[in-house]
Design a protein around this nucleic acid. Structure first.
Lengths: 226, 226
DNA sequence: ACAATCCTTTACCGGACTGTGACAAACCCT
DNA sequence: AGGGTTTGTCACAGTCCGGTAAAGGATTGT
């Protein structure tokens, strides 16, 4: 599902947004001010940003401007109070995808989010079929094939390889994986992650003993090379 | 191929759209203003409408509103200039399927049109009689046959298989089914969905113990393979 | 009101999936 | 080279999930 960052300083509003979006099945992260938002945006990929304009430290406008300069093209929906200068949002090439004026109904917001997420999805469809080693993965259908033979992959295996793919050619630490795939519970110093890597290698690598795609970076984590 | 009505007053834009869409294999008709659009819509069936918002005589919004009132459910993609009130478009009460903001790239528009047309097609197929496994289903009459023998299907069973069909080859979660077929009640702590899957398998699968059409995706839901 | 039918819930079982710990192997640093 | 740390691998057990049947509840037609 889509991963949404909500940037909003008013606690009640933030909580309301988070609960409603989560109820609709979205992944939700939050930030209280512009600085925190930028921090999160630099360390994690989101699919959509709900960005209040009037927030402490760095304004919503500036957050948007900044990330666009940095090449981050995540869709943005601005949350504005009535009377704020919307023109500047839509006119100033900030690259906002939409805006919504407070007070707004939850249903309206959800409709907007879904509209944007639909657009995101259709764009992403092309990217959802990938090949790693001799394995063809299809994340829209959560299936895998190797030379026309179906390969059974568990849900979590797909999530792990998906996360690695999203961070291909980067080093991904076990901690990252536990946090993002295992969802911030279970902080075991165990071999859990390794076990999944093991299984994935057996399915992806031609010779699992000499991995060419899922590499170990000693003391740091793993790196996926497609 | 699909029959598209382009409603756009600016001649250059209209011609550009027509040429590109025709090049992609679509049938294209054009209208210069809202009145002409309504006229055409009353005399011909289209599969999709590209509707500029700012057009003479009757606005795009009003065209959409009017035909919806008349029961015409042809999908609409709005063309809007930046800064126009997207709100009203996305109010979605108008029944727009999508919108696109000028200036847009041709490739983007084509992608949108294809996305909508894909949705249309899968819907159209659904209208007719389909076959899954050894079962022939007729959704217009809500009946089913297996090798010329009538098979009794309850209303809800038909709805479930219908939903699965609309999302064939995709993973459909129990939650989705509960929300879309059962209309948003019922907690997911129940085996209700499973029971329907059980019944459907007994009617569809040759060997219900090893389902080949209604597959289980552990931890995720079900997937229909026709 | 009664019966029939369909839908929902409950309960139990079997199995898939995942997490754990032990041990071996590989790696890194001194 | 050697010790300590990190990683690979395996088998086992617990947990969660889905399959299934049967009972309980709701709705409809007679």
């Amino acid at each position: 599902m889509l991963n949404i960052l909500v940037v909003e300083d008013e606690p009640a509003m933030q909580m309301g947004l988070r609960d409603n979006l989560q109820f609709e099945g979205f992944e939700v992260a939050t930030a209280d001010d512009g600085e925190a938002a930028l921090e999160k945006l630099h360390h994690e990929n989101f699919d959509l940003i709900l960005l209040d304009v009037m927030i402490p430290k760095v304004s919503g406008f500036d957050v948007c401007k900044t990330i666009r300069k940095e090449g981050i093209e995540t869709p943005v929906i601005f949350l504005t109070a009535k009377g704020e200068e919307i023109d500047k949002v839509l006119g100033l090439e900030l690259g906002a995808d939409d805006y919504i004026t407070k007070p707004f109904s939850v249903r309206e917001l959800i409709a907007r989010v879904k509209a944007v997420s639909r657009r995101i999805k259709t764009q992403e469809i092309t990217e959802e079929k990938i090949t790693i080693g001799n394995l063809n993965l299809d994340f829209t259908h959560y299936t895998a094939k190797s030379e026309d033979k179906d390969v059974k992959m568990s849900h979590k295996e797909m999530e792990v390889i998906h996360y690695l793919w999203q961070h291909k050619n980067e080093i991904v630490s076990r901690h990252d994986l536990l946090e993002k795939v295992w969802k911030y519970e279970a902080q075991p110093t165990t071999r859990t992650v390794d076990n999944f890597i093991l299984k994935l290698r057996q399915k992806i690598e031609t010779n699992p003993n000499e991995p060419r795609h899922i590499l170990t970076v000693h003391g740091a984590g793993y790196k996926l090379i497609p």
